[in-house]
Every structure is written in C-alpha cells, then in structure tokens.
Design a protein around this nucleic acid. Sequence first.
DNA 1: TCTGGGGTCCTAGGACCC
DNA 2: TCTGGGGTCCTAGGACCC
Length: 419
Amino acid sequence: MFALVDCNNFYVSCERVFCPALVGKPVVVLSNNDGCVIARSSEAKALGIAMGAPFFKSRDLFEKHNVRFFSSNYALYGDMSGRVMTTLEQFTPDLEIYSIDEAFLCLDGFSDLTSYAQRIRLTVRQHTGIPVSIGIAPTKTLAKLANKIAKKDASLQGVLDLADAHNIDSLLAGVAVEDVWGVGARYAAMLGRHGITNACQLKNAGDGFIHKTMTIAGLRTVRELRGEPCIELEQSPAPKKAIGSSRSFGRPVDDMAELLESVSEYVSRAAEKLRRQHCAASLVQVYLTTNRFKDEPQYANYLSCTLPSPTAYTPELISCAQACIRAIYRKGYRYKKTGILLSGITPANGLQLNIFAGGRRTRGDEKALMHALDSLNRRYGSNTVQFASSGIDKRWKMLQSYKSPFYTTRWDELPAVKA
DNA sequence: TCTGGGGTCCTAGGACCC
DNA sequence: TCTGGGGTCCTAGGACCC
C-alpha cells in the first residue's frame, strides 16, 4: 500500500507559518522574476486567480481584493520541505521524496491506515505548521488520485483510503482525465477526441489504443488505475543525468558582456550541483532567446560544446559556455534569457584522462580549488566566493521585489519572539 | 516594465560499427 | 535486373511531472 502525502498550497503555507496574519486571507507566491502566480491559497483560488497567471496582468484584481503576494523564497521552502520529510520518516522506513512538497510512503504491514494517516497529518502540522493531505491506495497512480479527492472533499478531513470506498469506479468517474498522474493537456485533448474524459473511462480503455497513442508510459498509467502496481517506490534518488540552470533577466539585455556574465553565473551554479553528486560532465549546452511575448525582432539559438574529457572544474566549463555565447550572439536584439545545460554526466572518480592535456595544471590542483570554493560557500553562504566572470553588479539579475525574510536559514533574519 | 525553472522518459531517425 | 543483417549510440522532439 502506498500513501501519498502532499502539502496543501505548499509555498503559501510556508509563508503563513511565519506570518499567521495571512491565514484566512488570499495569498499567492510568484515565480522567479516575479513573473507568474505559482502557488495560491484557497481564498486566492476562490477569487478565480489561475495557476500561471501573469502577475502584471492580475495586479488590478490583487489590489481590489487585497491579495497578498510574495516573490518565491526557495531557501525557505527547501528548508521547510526538509522538516516535513524528516517528520514523515518517523512513520515508515520506506519513503520516497517525490518533490519539494510530496512524498510516497510504503505502508505495507500497517493496519488501520486511515487513522494512522490522521496521526501523520496532525504530527506534521504540529512539528512544522504545514497542512497536508493524504491519499492511500495499492498503486502510486491511485494514491495520487485519492489525494486529489481528499483535498477537494472537506468531509474526508484530508485523508482518503481508496480501500474504504465502496464504489471506486464511481469515484474515478468523478475525476477528470487530465487530473490523472501522467496525463497532461496534450493527452487529455487527444483522449477527449476519443470520448475519454474521466479516469474511469481511461481505466477501461483498450491496451492497444493506449500503447499506440500514449506509449508504454501511458499503458503503465492505465494499468495502475486498474490497481496493478507498475511504478515502484524509489527510495534513493539516482544521480542527475542533466543539470541545467537558466533565468529570465530582470530587464532586457542587449550587451554581450552581460550575457557572458549570466552564463558564467549559471554554469557556476550547475557545476556546484555536479560536484555535490561527485560527478563530472562532458557536454555543455548554451542557449539564448529574446522575449517571445514582445512584438519586436525575435532571435533564439543554442550551441553545445563537447569537452575532451569530463570535468567538474568550473573555469573550464565557463570558458566553454562563454565561447558558445560569443558564437551565437547577434547584435541588435533585446535578450530575455540565457541558460546552460550540463550533460554527459559520469562519476568523478575513475575519469578517463585526456592524453593531450599534459602541461596544464593537474587535476589534483583543480579539485583542491573547487573543494575550497564549495566549502567557503557552504559555510558562509552562496556566492561568498565567486568567479569575476559572473560580474559584480549583475544588473541583469532577476527581480525579487516581494521576498519574505530567510526566516530559517539566516541568523539575522530569524523571527523574534517578544515577551 | 511586466509572462518561471528544473527535471524525466519515450520514440524515431541518422550515423556508425562489424 | 541485380547491393544484407544485426546492432549501438546519439540527438531532437514531444510528452510528462512538480
């Protein structure tokens, strides 16, 4: 048996923990660059504020209903997520952290699951202040679905064990096909054209048709809806096969020097992650693009660069990425965004050395330098030491005009309790 | 002035190998 | 008139997830 524990309106809930005055009021959290709405309180949803709604188009509505809004504060959300997951680990030895706000728990061998799940809810609430909902079922896909129903139906008090339902098919018939895990907008439209609009109809669709139109992954989804487990619990996350970093700029950028700074910064971020998983990369991909929403000359391009041997040495990766930008940069455009992707990832120990790389500084020196860099930044905060090529002013940086304090990760921003 | 970021998996097609 | 068969690897594109 699987339980899916999902935090309710997670980012909004994190903000509310440290600012209880927000409880009961419409609250939203914005994407990077304060671009779109990516989390909404139930009050905000009730006002008709859509997921992904552009912030600047909604400002009037926000003002009218006194909607509170926040820039995203990932240091806070990541830290709160860790606290929730640590609490969940007390309830089962077998747990998969699926995303920042969700975990699958294996409940095999446990009894009285609904009341156990209620205890989980109360404990998470007490330890972290975060409200969660829990769906229980014999497959992950059904557990996701049960969770969705538990969130919607207030009478369930946040928990639904599908085994308790007397008529699962009628429950499935009440769930739109696009709300099934693994069915996105494209598949939902395609299925709709074939008369399949709810989860029960999808469950009863023909295997051949599903395989042909939705590949093997779609077939797994359908089998899971029938109660046949096809997707296992993954307890130890596999190392990443690709690590990317990209950001929209806070304002249009036309100067190549600033584009070079931005990719240097993004490569530094990605390389840090690469070293954290003890890997090296052999392929650097770089792209740039203008703002597709603007009625002005558009240009987008990308270029990749294969390294002679895999590396996790930031300066080498930066040189590659900057060479790519120089090659694809065209003067006269207003750029909106650059991004990089590291791939061809292999474990850093036992690297194939390059026979032609003699005479350069040794791998040992590079490793020591990166280790020192990472240690300093871990201890004293991100970007305490950085590469000059990433720039000093960084006037291209994204906007974060409405960010809440780093309540849990910076000494000088800890909330104070007044006597 | 203003529309996010970071991933995974599957498939098809092309280049290459023997 | 007439030119094989079996395979791997890589990449791009399209779908999905949060």
